[in-house]
């Protein structure tokens, strides 16, 4: 399809970007890779009057090791994220999930911040950000704020960003020793969106799960945590009863815990899955993710 006309602005500084966004009203949209926005423009489902292209703002780009956390600039591409040694070493869950995003072409254009700000519950990164308790660093004219992930994803395709507010980057806390990670994505073709995805971070101690964080992709209007599973996993033996993690055999407390993965969720129904199938997948995939993360 062919987009409707729009103005295009490529600010030279973050200040200018904030200013343009603040003065252009709600019809202004940020272009930060465009892998989700451009299809909407082409289908004429979005009619922004101004596109503010952040592509040339160096401040928003790159990955920094900041001691207790890793800072990922909003415009860092998925490809850069999944290849970053800092991310792979300190916050590997981010790299694991990013490697499952779409295909190489999309990953070279699409950006970490763009994907998060789009707030698509079917996106792979929002659930990861939620599971890791990331903090979103934003700027606006005359100010900045930090938004915890739990407050950032407001609704379907809606983030907490206000008009005139730009996502600068994301602080990803390092979880330290003893943690294992896994992102379990279920999709129908390699390039397809997640039907359901599970981001798991598990800390084991003395043969038991000491702490777990579970984020779910595409199980509601926003990414969601699975607090019931997190609570139930605490203290469960980290090794599978028959030793190989397969689903056969003896009673498995981890399996029981993961059976609560779909509690309090309202997963969507669409062409690729009904809601109850998504609930089922959430349980199965959470189990697999936890097993893989604690292996």
């Amino acid at each position: 399809m062919i987009p409707a006309a729009f103005d295009y602005v490529r600010p030279a500084s973050l200040e200018e970007a904030c200013h343009v966004l603040a003065t252009s009203g709600e019809e202004a949209k940020v272009l930060a890779g465009g892998q989700s926005l451009l299809p909407l423009l082409r289908l004429r489902l979005a009619y922004p009057s101004v596109l503010v292209d952040l592509g040339r703002l160096p401040d928003l780009h790159g990955v920094q090791d900041r001691g207790d956390h890793v800072f990922i600039g909003a415009l860092t591409t998925h490809d850069e994220v999944m290849r970053s040694p800092v991310i792979r070493e300190h916050v590997p869950l981010v790299a694991l999930a990013t490697a499952t995003v779409a295909d190489p072409a999309v990953r070279h254009r699409g950006t970490f911040g763009g994907s998060l700000a789009h707030a698509d519950p079917a996106g792979d990164l929002p659930a990861v950000a939620l599971a890791l308790d990331c903090v979103f660093v934003t700027r606006m004219t005359g100010g900045q704020r930090e938004i915890p992930a739990a407050d950032f994803f407001v609704d379907y395709l809606e983030s907490a960003l206000e008009a005139g507010e730009v996502l600068v980057g994301v602080k990803v806390p390092k979880l330290g020793a003893g943690w294992g990670f896994h992102y379990e994505k279920f999709h129908r073709t390699a390039q397809a969106w997640a039907v359901v995805g599970v981001a798991a971070a598990v800390r084991t101690e003395g043969g038991a799960i000491a702490e777990a964080r579970i984020g779910l992709t595409n199980m509601g209007s926003t990414p969601v945590r699975a607090p019931a599973v997190e609570a139930a996993l605490r203290g469960a033996p980290s090794a599978a009863p028959n030793g190989n993690g397969s689903s056969n055999g003896a009673h498995d407390p981890v399996r029981d815990a993961c059976g609560e993965a779909a509690d309090d969720t309202s997963p969507p129904a669409d062409l690729h899955a009904t809601s109850d199938y998504r609930r089922h997948l959430a349980r199965v995939l959470t189990y697999r993710a936890v097993r893989a993360a604690s292996a």
Binding site: R188, S246, S247, H272, A273, T274, D276, Y277, H280, V284
Partner: peptide, 23 residues
């Protein structure tokens, strides 16, 4: 033969898969 159709076919046949129950 989408994953959901297969999962439902298993469930409807009454032969739940080992481990996780069918629908």
């Amino acid at each position: 033969c989408s994953p959901e159709r297969i999962w439902r076919a298993i469930g409807e046949s009454g032969g739940a898969a080992a481990g996780w129950a069918g629908p």
